[in-house]
C-alpha cells in the first residue's frame, strides 16, 4: 500500500500541498524543541545541553523501527522508497566540512530557517552563508567535479554493506541511543554545575 504517492494512491497533484503541511510540522517540531537557538544546539558538543542528541536519536530510532513494522505487516513496500545514493569519500569530506560549519555557525540548514522565523539575525546570516556556499560550490564545480562523483556505491543500504539484517541495525541504533541518553544525562549534570555564563 505505502508509499502512497509512488503507488498512485494519492495523486501527484497533492505533492506540494503535502510538502507544505509536512514542512510546517517539521519546522514546528524543530522550533518547539529549542533548535531556533544556536547555543542550545551547540551544547551537544560541549556537554552542557544534549537536546540535539536526544531529539535526533529518538527520531532516528522511532522512524527506523516504524518503517520496519510497516514493512513487516506488509503495509509498506521498502523496495519503493528512496535510498540516498552513497558516494563514500565525497560524503565523508562533505560531512567533515559540515561538521566544521556546524561548530562555527551553530545551526544546520533546517534549524536556521526556524531561527529566521522567530527573528534571529544569526539565523538570517547563516542562511545567507548557505546560499553563498552553494553558489561558490556551483561556480567552482569543474575544479572537483571528478571527485564529487567518485566512490559511487549506488543506492546502498547499511544492511547490504555489512550483511546485517535491517532489524539488527535498528536494534543496534536503539541500544546505542539508550546508552547515550543515560550517559549524556550524567555528563550534562556535571557540566552544568560548573557553568555560570549559561543559564537553563
Amino acid at each position: 500500500m505505502c508509499p502512497l504517492i509512488p503507488n498512485g494512491i494519492i495523486g501527484t497533484g497533492w505533492d506540494f500541498v503535502i510538502a507544505l503541511i509536512l514542512g510546517i510540522a517539521f519546522g514546528f517540531i524543530l522550533e518547539a524543541s529549542g533548535f531556533s537557538s544556536s547555543r542550545n544546539i551547540v551544547g551537544v558538543f560541549y556537554g552542557y545541553n544534549f537536546v540535539v542528541l536526544r531529539v535526533f536519536f529518538t527520531a532516528l530510532i522511532v522512524a527506523m523501527v516504524g518503517l520496519l513494522y510497516f514493512s513487516y505487516f506488509g503495509w509498506l513496500d521498502l523496495s519503493k522508497i528512496f535510498i540516498l545514493p552513497t558516494y563514500l569519500t565525497p560524503m565523508i569530506v562533505g560531512g567533515v566540512i559540515m561538521g566544521i560549519g556546524f561548530i562555527m555557525g551553530g545551526f544546520c540548514p533546517g534549524t536556521s530557517f526556524t531561527a529566521v522565523a522567530i527573528g534571529k539575525l544569526d539565523g538570517i546570516v547563516f542562511t545567507i552563508g548557505l546560499y553563498l556556499g552553494i553558489f561558490v560550490f556551483s561556480e567552482t564545480f569543474p575544479l572537483f567535479g571528478d571527485f564529487y562523483s567518485s566512490g559511487d556505491l549506488g543506492n546502498m543500504t547499511i544492511t547490504e554493506a555489512f550483511g546485517i539484517p535491517a532489524s539488527w541495525v535498528a536494534l543496534a541504533f536503539t541500544v546505542v541511543a539508550l546508552a547515550a541518553f543515560w550517559g549524556t544525562m550524567l555528563i550534562e549534570k556535571r557540566v552544568r554545575k560548573n557553568m555560570t555564563e549559561y543559564k537553563f
Binding site: 555557525g105 544546520c108 546570516v125 546560499y131 552553494i134 564529487y148
Partner: peptide, 18 residues
Amino acid sequence: ALIGGMLFGIGSQFGRGC
C-alpha cells in the same frame, strides 16, 4: 555564522544532503 553557513552549504553538496 556567515562562514559556518558557507561551509555547511558547500559540505551539503558533497554530502548529498545535510
